[in-house]
Computed example of a mutant assay.
Amino acid sequence: MNTLLNVIWLLFGGIWLALGYFAAGILCCVLIITIPFGIASFRIGLYALWPFGRTVVDRGGQVSFFSTMGNIIWLLVAGIWIAIGHVLTAIPMFVSIIGIPLGIANLKLIPVSLMPLGKVIVETRGTRIPQYR
């Protein structure tokens, strides 16, 4: 099911969203001081390309000062605007029944787009449905 949802996601906006994150990552890597933001943009872009079956978790351990300061800078410069963009693109996705999982996936991208440093994207395990006899 995740593969089918990922293909639909890819066709109906995921590719453009990922390309936007990749373009921002390239721009951030060209400007040497913003390389950590570029790496975060590439990571979010890969997540935006194929979001179903994966989730975002906090990186284990203590959060560093630089990660916190980077997240504050990211939040003020780009994070708020990216989150607003995700909300505005999720709203039309919720209009159709087929688009509801896509809207949820779009909203799932908001936490990592607000504060990307100190986060890791991991595979989720499939949930088992208990069998009753």
Rank of each mutant, 00 (worst) to 15 (best):
L4F: 15
V7S: 13
V7A: 15
I8S: 07
I8T: 10
W9A: 07
W9M: 10
L10E: 07
L10M: 12
L11D: 09
L11G: 11
L11A: 13
F12Y: 08
F12R: 06
G14R: 01
I15Y: 11
W16L: 13
W16F: 13
L17S: 11
A18S: 09
L19T: 10
L19Y: 11
G20N: 09
G20M: 04
F22H: 08
A23E: 11
A23N: 09
A24Q: 11
I26G: 14
L27I: 15
L27Q: 11
L27E: 12
V30C: 15
L31V: 15
L31P: 10
I32V: 15
I32N: 09
P36A: 02
P36D: 06
F37V: 05
F37P: 02
F37E: 02
G38L: 01
I39M: 05
A40G: 03
S41G: 03
F42N: 04
R43D: 00
G45C: 00
L46D: 03
Y47L: 06
Y47M: 04
L49S: 03
L49N: 04
L49H: 02
W50V: 12
W50S: 08
P51Y: 04
P51A: 06
P51D: 06
F52G: 06
G53S: 02
G53Q: 01
R54L: 02
V57M: 10
V57Y: 08
V57E: 13
D58S: 14
R59S: 15
G60R: 12
G60W: 05
G61W: 01
V63R: 15
S64M: 04
S64I: 03
F65M: 09
F65T: 12
F65P: 00
F66K: 12
S67R: 13
M69D: 04
M69W: 11
M69I: 13
M69R: 10
M69K: 08
M69S: 12
G70N: 00
I72K: 07
I73N: 09
I73T: 14
L76K: 03
G79P: 02
I80L: 13
I80R: 06
I80M: 10
W81N: 06
A83M: 07
A83G: 04
I84V: 13
H86Y: 11
H86V: 09
V87D: 05
I91C: 05
I91M: 11
P92W: 07
P92C: 06
M93L: 15
S96I: 15
S96D: 08
S96M: 10
I97Y: 08
I98P: 02
G99F: 02
G99H: 01
G103C: 08
I104N: 07
I104T: 10
A105Y: 03
A105H: 03
N106Y: 02
N106W: 08
K108A: 12
K108R: 15
I110V: 14
P111K: 00
P111I: 02
P111G: 03
V112I: 15
L114V: 02
M115L: 14
M115P: 06
L117Y: 03
L117C: 08
G118N: 01
K119Q: 14
V120P: 07
V120D: 15
I121Y: 02
I121C: 00
V122M: 09
E123D: 14
E123M: 10
E123N: 12
E123G: 08
T127S: 12
R128Y: 14
R128G: 11
R128Q: 14
I129F: 11
I129A: 13
